[in-house]
Amino acid sequence: MAGTFNGFGQKAIPFLKALDFHQSREWFQENRDLYQSELHEPFCDLVETLSERFEAAKLGLRGDRKKSLFRINRDVRFSKDKRPYNRHLSAILSPDGSKMSQGVFYVHIGLERCFAGVAWWQPAPELLQAMRKAIATKPAAFRAMVTALKKGGLALDSEDRLKRPPRGFEDVSEDDLAQAVRNRHFVVRHEIDAAGIHTTALVDELVDFTLRAKPVLDWGRAIQGKIG
């Protein structure tokens, strides 16, 4: 049964701050009820409320309280940093409701920042190659997507961009295209004011952002559909 999002508890961020200070399984167990009521259950409700709103808006993104959230526990098996808990909680809504598909919505509530993103993140080599080829051979479609994002106040993120053109794209000379083919990901982001996470208005804010970010979803899906 989908829950209705009524805002995160006022102690959501203070809980993360205290958890980060203690980084103790004993402390977490003692305060699990606070975690559930202030952070985890509201986050589950947010995911399911967004899933309903995304369906109504025909965005092709969905999620639920069981599959969408990432665990607050860190995987420390291969890390030198053995702190057991993350400093944030996050979730993905995707075309199939899993965390494994591409062209997704991501939301992150944390100590350093709160933000949302719409992303083709680390696409598989075949899809990434097809995206780069589409940029080089169908620049009008790529530029139309960028222009549509700009009209919505958004822009593709340049994080983790290659320093040099990938093999086969050395001859792409126009600056905007040359930069774009160096992308490893195609992402737009929206910063969330932490003071605004406690009200239902967060849902409208995130739906509005995702609608403005839809051009990058549509662009990637058109390419994906030709190689699937």
Rank of each mutant, 00 (worst) to 15 (best):
residue 42 P to Y: 10
residue 146 V to I: 08
residue 147 T to L: 12
residue 193 D to S: 08
residue 228 G to Q: 11
residue 83 R to C: 00
residue 167 R to H: 10
residue 157 D to R: 05
residue 69 L to R: 15
residue 120 W to F: 15
residue 115 F to C: 04
residue 46 L to H: 09
residue 42 P to A: 10
residue 178 A to C: 08
residue 142 F to D: 00
residue 210 T to S: 11
residue 194 A to W: 00
residue 203 V to T: 15
residue 212 R to F: 01
residue 175 D to A: 14
residue 97 G to E: 02
residue 149 L to Y: 03
residue 183 N to C: 09
residue 121 W to L: 14
residue 120 W to G: 09
residue 225 G to Y: 04
residue 40 H to W: 04
residue 145 M to S: 04
residue 135 I to T: 10
residue 91 A to H: 02
residue 204 D to F: 07
residue 221 R to H: 13
residue 148 A to N: 09
residue 76 V to F: 06
residue 130 A to L: 07
residue 220 G to S: 06
residue 209 F to H: 03
residue 29 Q to V: 01
residue 39 L to T: 11
residue 82 K to M: 12
residue 178 A to N: 14
residue 120 W to Q: 07
residue 216 V to R: 04
residue 8 F to Q: 07
residue 195 A to Y: 00
residue 49 T to M: 09
residue 194 A to R: 14
residue 51 S to E: 02
residue 39 L to A: 09
residue 156 L to H: 11
residue 77 R to L: 08
residue 43 F to W: 01
residue 6 N to T: 04
residue 32 R to A: 12
residue 101 S to L: 03
residue 152 G to N: 04
residue 164 R to I: 05
residue 123 P to W: 10
residue 173 S to G: 10
residue 66 K to P: 00
residue 74 R to F: 04
residue 101 S to K: 10
residue 173 S to W: 05
residue 119 A to T: 10
residue 54 F to V: 03
residue 68 S to I: 10
residue 46 L to C: 06
residue 64 D to K: 05
residue 93 L to W: 09
residue 94 S to D: 01
residue 170 E to D: 11
residue 147 T to E: 13
residue 24 S to F: 04
residue 6 N to Q: 15
residue 102 Q to N: 07
residue 26 E to D: 13
residue 47 V to K: 13
residue 128 L to Q: 11
residue 44 C to W: 01
residue 76 V to H: 06
residue 48 E to R: 02
residue 200 T to N: 05
residue 186 F to H: 14
residue 98 S to M: 08
residue 20 D to T: 13
residue 79 S to V: 08
residue 23 Q to D: 10
residue 175 D to N: 09
residue 194 A to F: 02
residue 202 L to Q: 05
residue 211 L to I: 12
residue 15 F to D: 13
residue 155 A to C: 00
residue 209 F to V: 04
residue 212 R to H: 12
residue 10 Q to S: 14
residue 18 A to N: 13
residue 14 P to C: 11
residue 113 R to A: 15
residue 201 A to V: 00
residue 119 A to M: 14
residue 152 G to K: 00
residue 140 A to M: 08
residue 19 L to P: 09
residue 43 F to Q: 06
residue 180 A to N: 03
residue 18 A to Y: 04
